[in-house]
Amino acid sequence: MALNQEQVQWIAHLGRLELKQEELASSAKHLSAILEYINLLQQVDTSDVLPLTHAIDMANVFRPDELKPSLGVQDALANAPDRKGDLFGVPPVLD
């Protein structure tokens, strides 16, 4: 199915991406072409097939609930784009 620019704008917003006008146009074109190709899958009869999320058998892994040292505050904050003391700085969340 073909996507128009309005739909792409909505998907970009869901993915928290701001796109420039020219990116909107090229994304609509490329995503439509890719989705058209992907429609190939509709040919496959999967009525009795279960989804496979991991190719190798996976089991839940548990560990003892023990206190262990973790990343220190200074290390954790070292890459922060905005730091306020020992906290991450963010724009206001509530008006």
Binding site: G15, R16, K20, S26, I34, V90
Partner: peptide, 26 residues
């Protein structure tokens, strides 16, 4: 805050990464 997410990601990611995020989101 939402605008900060959108602008930071819009500026930081290249075209193919944005394309794949959008395809996956869709």
């Amino acid at each position: 805050l939402i605008d900060m997410y959108c602008k930071s990601r819009g500026e930081g990611f290249g075209a193919e990464v944005k394309r794949r995020i959008m395809l996956g989101t869709y």
